[in-house]
Design a protein around this nucleic acid. Sequence first.
DNA 1: GAGTGGTCTAGACCACTAT
DNA 2: TAGTGGTCTAGACCACTCC
Lengths: 291, 291
Amino acid sequence: MELGKAEEIAAKLRSDILNGMLAAGTKLAPERELSEQFGVSRMTARRAIQALEGEGLVVRYPVRGTFVAGIRERLLVERGREVQSPPGSQAIAAAELRQSGSFLKDMQRLGRKPRVQFLEQSALVAASDDIAAHLHIPKGRLVLKRYRLQSADNLPYRLIESYYPADLFGELLTLDIGDTPLFAWLQERHGLKVTHTQEMLIARLATQNERQLLQISANAPVVAIDRTVLASTGRPVEWAHIIAVAALYMFTYEYDILDWNQEQKHGDTPATDQTSNTPGNQRRATYWDRH
Amino acid sequence: MELGKAEEIAAKLRSDILNGMLAAGTKLAPERELSEQFGVSRMTARRAIQALEGEGLVVRYPVRGTFVAGIRERLLVERGREVQSPPGSQAIAAAELRQSGSFLKDMQRLGRKPRVQFLEQSALVAASDDIAAHLHIPKGRLVLKRYRLQSADNLPYRLIESYYPADLFGELLTLDIGDTPLFAWLQERHGLKVTHTQEMLIARLATQNERQLLQISANAPVVAIDRTVLASTGRPVEWAHIIAVAALYMFTYEYDILDWNQEQKHGDTPATDQTSNTPGNQRRATYWDRH
DNA sequence: GAGTGGTCTAGACCACTAT
DNA sequence: TAGTGGTCTAGACCACTCC
């Protein structure tokens, strides 16, 4: 098999963690100590631990040390049709988007101390190309921008950069609706009922900026989510770009499968196909690229 | 801001890539050359490039070099209700699970050369605890196991480890159904119609083993998917554990939002809550842990 | 002051491949 | 043979926190 030294150490620690020898919460030996134990340089021991960190098996804190993580700490996000808890899962269920202000409520229900931090003052800004396209409004039209960080027990969970058409939500800048869910207010004030959501997910490592804001280290993956919330009329009422700490989340989806015989009923998405086959090297950077 | 040297270099290259100065496919300068240009050690230059790799902006090949990647190469997986192509997206649409054998068909439709490689000979095995629980059968009952690697143009896309109840699919070991979709055959042979699917996703870095099989490097994230496919009777007919190269995928979901007023209609998943609040340090490792 | 992880240096050898 | 990324060494200094 010829594993490298770092991977040998990682494999040893990994199996110790997975078979329970090292229980969740246990503090690992410091890097310098591991390097002595295994007779390697500190950088090699370090890479071993970084590998485990990326796999979500350990969590590292400067000064404090490295600790065994556990999947039980992941926040379970449920989407789609009614979802049953996966057998054996001990993850934490979230009511995300079933109710507004769901992060606060979920965390409170779980006995944690949630915190929402506005990284910028909410303001009306002119819609960029991206935002205009997602909200189906002309470029330059005013939108309400919110940029916030959600944490629980002082542990950052995700960054949310969200945009709302100003004609619907602009007055919220001066109007305090208290605990009223945003979309409940929308329905009362404008008669628009929120009915469905489109999401796009990609997984990648965090950028430097995201690492600082989310307090994670260089090997920690994030899930980048692009979300459009639509009213029953089909009008987009929110577009959000979310960066979630991957190690803290678990996403559950349930969906129907189309009939095997009525293939391509929903179309073979010709627009996407055509563009995807063109080289298109000069494509503008979208939100997916702008980390 | 006080960025480290590695992050300074990464930031420079990142902006060059995102604003188009470095087009997709461009070969980056070798590590040794970059380290000279920026006046840092090779390890520092290397960490800069590894950061970009994790973000999905570049792809590295031993011997060949490092190349600018592009989001246009991601395979777009569409789930849920009818999905519209996201504005500006040039990702590739996949018919995943809308038809069986979808990977082959998708890739062929895109003009790529798909390949499915069986990493183990398919066989009947006794169901472990996990598999039995997911398939709703007693532990030890026979299941058909398949373990395969899907690639396109010799580029590995994902590992699929899948299990099927032997009473339904066992005869496939000796029966060649050719190109017939697996679930179409199921309906004809057993009258079971596949209707919906539950999926769980987590994102993490790949393990050594996964890195070797998927031919990705240490900083590359994967998306681990746990999928149960159910017949209209509610019986699970497939359980699969999928490891997808994160940089090659993009997941799209569309789902309905429940009425804001009928909160908790689907229950607040008490079972999950109760277990999740217990420390539970002695929980058995599940498939989510077994990388 | 001691100890933690974060960063960085200036080398080294390896496997592999294109020429 | 030259050049690539992959791995490793044996140090170093830093910022930060806990004692």
